[in-house]
Design a protein around this nucleic acid. Structure first.
Lengths: 282, 282
DNA sequence: ACATCCATGAAATAAAATTTCATTTTTTCT
DNA sequence: AGAAAAAATGAAATTTTATTTCATGGATGT
């Protein structure tokens, strides 16, 4: 993704002259984006075609295209090196890293989403007799959150984070019911079984999971949410946040499909909470 | 700074033809960064010099320089103009908007965080005899998630999303206990009371809330998570995601403070889940 | 209605990037 | 080690792209 990282990575696959170019770029990328190909060539003591070949080797269309990528990499000031939390990081550092990698993963997740499938899911949800959300562990939280959202829409919605309840609920499902199964790994045995049970009973099964997992195979619709693996090192992190954002998208699609009158209703739900709150002094 | 905003701002100082260029750019900036000046001129039905003049008017050196700025503006995914979901948005559009505003709000939240307070919170947490997480509604999910995380650390941790249980637990708290109260609005009466009860009983109360709310006043440490208000129009959206990211930060700080031996333990917890999963065929 | 100013685009020019191809360097094989 | 093959490199030519110049037409104000 980030072209500076990419250059650093591929440094040893480059030829001698190309490496000179790479070094000049890495040492002062901010100068390079304002240089012409001739200026850069001179700076690196090599010829213009070499710069051009260098750009192509990095899968860009040519020098101007390369500069565009470079500019983007520099844009948000994102440090382009390793964003993993390190043993000796200060609070400042690990906070920044976690927020940044969360944002980066949201971006990744968005790219992996197929909006036509979102559209179909919203279709199915608005028609549903009953909606069930199932998840375990960190994904249970996502299911919980989804229930919280859809409950406001005044539709029959349940959520279970208990294996037995999930099974029973899946066995009792029927045509017109929608079962949403959430799992980052897509390999949790009991959840895959639940998905398969629900499907056998003619419910529509929507999976919120990673592409190509066993769970994905059991679903009628797969909403794939791919995040980079190693961010969830010892604990689920970015995966659940991406899943939650997807829940927001589904809920939003739902309210839009239901039309403006429906949204007035939502406002009522919100207003009903007012008495439980302290006033805002303004 | 952001050139797309700048274009939108200066739209009325532009001439008729230049405005045509502006509109084309605003409507599909991602296409433009890959277009030549000729292609853009054609797209806008004006001549090439007009595009050039347009670029100069925006204080860039010329078209290539303008593209560089544009690329940078697009890079960080910052929502540029109005990113509110609209009645007639397609699935594609509202998906993009929700993800983008989520990311923008994470950025906002990060800026509002005081890392020295995070450091102190981690201090307190690592010393705690017991940790309790309280939240209601959407924040209940965050509390739930926090429990899920800290549970892995093998420390005494509880979570309640029930008002009565929260009260009882707060009344029974004592010195050395840490109570984390989560609320975006910071105005939910019962939660403010719970915070105050816990404080009276000498527990350390950490609030995850917005700056300057009634809840914030009752806390020993306030971790302020500010997100832009109107994104949470009818449903909590960005607020809870920012809170979750903060939970990640606290959990990470916790594991770092506990040292490397402790992290081996985490790996064991993760491995213990293996048998419940389908193998990954590689 | 006329003069002035400004916006605009056609054409010419300049700049920049890319391709082609000959030369040099490196690698591989005997 | 030495020859053949392959790869890397840069000079020059070509092509593409951007910019400048300048002539034209339309709007504005008197």
């Amino acid at each position: 993704m980030n072209i500076l990282e990419k250059i650093a990575n591929e440094l040893d696959t480059l030829s001698k002259s190309e490496r000179k170019v790479a070094e000049v770029i890495l040492s002062s990328p901010n100068t390079v984006i304002h240089s012409s190909i001739a200026a850069l060539a001179k700076q690196a003591n090599i010829s213009e075609p070499t710069v051009n070949r260098f750009c192509r080797r990095l899968d860009t269309k040519g020098y101007p295209d390369f500069k565009l990528h470079l500019a983007q990499s520099l844009a948000n000031g994102t440090p382009y090196v390793n964003r993993h939390v390190d043993e000796n990081d200060t609070a400042d550092e690990y906070t920044a890293k976690i927020f940044e990698s969360t944002m980066a993963n949201l971006e990744l997740a968005r790219k992996s989403l197929d909006t036509s499938l979102i559209n179909r899911s919203v279709d199915v949800l608005t028609q549903a007799n009953q909606i069930s959300f199932f998840g375990l562990g960190a994904s249970a939280i996502v299911a919980h959150d989804a229930q919280n959202k859809f409950f406001r829409f005044n539709v029959p919605v349940v959520y279970f984070d208990d294996i037995l309840m999930q099974r029973m609920s899946a066995i009792n499902s029927r045509q017109g019911d929608v079962v949403i199964v959430i799992s980052h790994t897509g390999r949790t045995k009991s959840l895959v079984e639940v998905a398969s049970l629900a499907k056998e009973n003619d419910a529509t099964v929507i999976g919120i999971t990673t592409t190509g997992t066993p769970l994905a195979k059991e679903c009628s619709i797969v909403l794939s949410v791919d995040v980079s693996e190693d961010t969830d090192l010892y604990m689920p992190m970015s995966s659940r946040i991406a899943q939650l954002a997807l829940v927001d998208v589904l809920a939003t699609g739902f309210t839009l499909r239901r039309g403006s009158k429906f949204r007035d209703n939502l406002k009522k739900v919100k207003d009903s909470l007012r008495s439980s709150r302290f006033d805002r002094k303004e």
